[in-house]
Design a protein around this nucleic acid. Structure first.
Lengths: 217, 217, 217, 217
DNA sequence: GATGAATGAGGCTTCATTCAT
DNA sequence: GATGAATGAAGCCTCATTCAT
């Protein structure tokens, strides 16, 4: 799991519980007020612990941010495989992955925005952890895409590049939510996105397959 | 344009010059170290002025950020119309607008990232200014899109929603540059994006028109 | 008493002790150098604590001033009742009250001057607290006066107005000490004041009573 | 006149005019906001000149305060002799002097308060100038008092000490105006003060003389 | 393990003063 | 003589971090 971050406390279960507590408080505060505007005292108070305690589970304020960001990215990494479970059809898997992504983003909207804003607040080495996690998630989407291409359902596009476009599409729901929420609901957003990407990516064969899925489903 | 922000100094030309000086220094520093890590002294030193001087042209540190962000958004608002000048064909105008957008983003890559990261650091009222400017720029793209739809060259899509997708596509070049630059060049990025959006948006008529343009051009 | 001012620290006893420490340091410094010339660092150093600590017991530099002024006024409010304890004769009580006032002023001479100089440095709402306290003290003197009038020992004067004159008489010892100390001692100052006010206020009956007291006492 | 303060400007008339301009602006600002809260820029703006100009007529910000305070004390020193002009009767002169003092204080109420608050803000040497001026004014009152005593109209009191009491009585009208104005008008204040001091000071002969004056007047 | 009072370095901001025009 | 833009020292206050209990 996520944290190679060192703690002064031995009991692993406790470490886990305390960190969860700290992260929960921090996500909310960071998301609303930003990293710099949030003090450790704020986090401590919201988490219902003392400020000193936090420093037994974390070395730095930046460490708290790292923990928070990793927890956000973790939730992405968990939801996508979960959504794919039991599905075998490449096209179904593809839409399921993208849809799942959009929905996690919606559930953790503020945290997603936070990730965009704050990654650069981390020192380079810790930021690499974040990037790695992002690449991993993107990889899941790209893999689905490649399976569709291999099956002749989609055009030969640069899978990673398009994966970025898909991911960005999902993120935008959070980043531009202030405006988008006035234009459509989440499901409408997803629907028009699917339509859009379908147009852009599907081969004639893919289109026919798509029809079948929708009719059959 | 851009700054309704008040200054202690009367001489407008001077105000303009000084602010440009301050903004130039600040963009660079904010982009690299972030808003909070950058001190006013840093900005002053880089701008070659005293810290006190800055406060004759700005009320706040946050005001500096506002000025910076507005200057970024301004550059968008200037480049797009410039790229459209002289073009009348709806499709040509559309691609020109999107291409121009991508290229400003590339030129001001760090500033663009800064805008994403730091807008939330502004108090609500100042943030509204930013949002307004963003909506305005988006409107330019959406207008081109609508013209294409009206001319029967593109499908009937939600113009504003798709405009967001286009804008996001451009921004991603800056936001994910750390990864994308390893996958392709800017022009390749634009080309595959055009291809992608063409697939998604053009009507048969639009496709034929597109052919003509490319052949003729 | 005195401090409705909020503190970050919970432990009331500690808050009390720390504030006393801060006030003690501040009175001296403010009295000598004035409020504006004294820095929080000065206060901290003299109090033997860190600058940051002060802000756990106070919100503002102005808050320190408020605390100081309230502590001065408090000492007035405590000394007068103490001086009256056990006395029942109206005339005796009157002189005791005025004498006590003069003596506190003498003991806290610099603080008294400070109160005159610095009250206006407070924002209006905090200044009201000071005024209220002053009115309360004046009320004690005025009450003694009224008792004497009721007993036919003093003329029918405007008690509150004369109370002001008495209070001002006491304050002047501090305010004009630089000159008065060359003209007389505190006790001489009080004596001539008593003589003066006796002439101005006593009725014939009061004069006879006064004789008795002095002879008997 | 008052200012030994040096100026960089030669033309004496100009110096005089400029200083009057500066003082006028400063009195008002200092009186309302206090010395430290008022900036030189504030004074310059209110005086309708540039900040730089002030430093051609003054060496220091403290110099401005000195000028202001001296101008206040000057007005005392002018009004009292003016009120005495033409009067020969010692008792009449005495009441005229005290009355005049009270009325200048009323006219320059805020400036008087300022003098109380701010004298200590001056460095020792400049403060001596103020004290000297105060002693001089007090001397005028004390002289009237001594004349009355010499004429057998008043008791043998310490003239300087009582002069202080009289002066303090006048000042209190300004210092405690916030409360006194609710208790009486200026003229009532003066009247009750006169009554009070008459009781305290007049000999039987003085009392008869007083009757004559009032009846005759 | 937990607490929370204490520390002190550091940043934003103000403003008296100067000086080139 | 007058201007006002520029300077830079200095002070208030915050907050990450420590440590005695």
């Amino acid at each position: 799991m996520a944290h190679d971050v060192k703690s002064q406390v031995a009991d692993e279960a406790l470490v886990h519980r305390r960190r969860a507590q700290i992260i929960a408080a921090a996500v909310e505060l960071f998301a609303h007020q930003g990293f710099y505007r949030t003090t450790i005292q704020d986090v401590a108070k919201k988490a219902g612990v003392s400020a000193g305690l936090i420093y037994q589970y974390v070395t730095d304020k930046e460490d708290v941010l790292l923990l928070v960001l990793l927890s956000v990215l973790d939730s992405y990494k968990q939801e996508i495989p979960a959504a794919l479970a039991g599905l075998t059809d490449p096209l179904e898997r593809f839409w399921a992955a993208v849809g799942a992504y959009c929905r996690v983003v919606d559930q953790r909207r503020e945290a997603t925005v936070l990730a965009y804003r704050s990654t650069k607040s981390l020192p380079d080495d810790r930021r690499e952890l974040i990037k790695a996690s992002e690449i991993e998630t993107n990889g899941m989407i790209a893999a689905c895409l490649r399976d569709c291409i291999k099956a002749g359902l989609m055009r030969e596009v640069n899978a990673e590049l398009v994966a970025y476009q898909l991911v960005t599409f999902a993120h935008s729901w959070a980043l531009k939510h202030w405006r988008l929420k006035e234009l459509c609901t989440l499901e409408e957003y997803i629907a028009q996105g699917f339509d859009f990407f379908a147009q852009a990516l599907l081969t004639p064969k893919g289109r026919r397959h798509q029809q079948k899925i929708q009719t059959g489903g």
